[in-house]
Design a binder for these strands. Sequence first.
DNA 1: GTATTGACCGTAG
DNA 2: TCTACGGCCAATA
Length: 115
Amino acid sequence: MENPSKFNRENFYKDVYEVVKLIPRGRVTNYGAIAKYLGTAKSSRMVGYALNQSFHIDIPAHRVVNRNGLLTGKHHFPEEKPMQTSLEAEGIRVENDQVVDFKKLFWDPSVELSL
DNA sequence: GTATTGACCGTAG
DNA sequence: TCTACGGCCAATA
């Protein structure tokens, strides 16, 4: 009852990973959407922070980009598997570290999972 | 316990 | 249209 409006940090991280893993192949989302879905839209930075720890976990973090569709976190990915390569492997076109038709490929958990 | 940083987002000039 | 600044939360030093 201490946190009625938002989840505990442990659940927060876990939920972030869950949502990221729920992202359909060939789709992408942004930090704000996930944060909003978790109820912490204002803490969208925390989503990125959680994902920073997620690179050591088995989740398609490469499907998560910023609101500009820019692969801001690609520098945090291992050089052997760049973010762009992973995205292109799923049919997502990436140009200049930016997702093409990001607006069309955008996947909002607060909407898709809310149906 | 305080200060700084961070895979961000939104608004204002 | 582009640039600059603030906010908000958590982790790390």
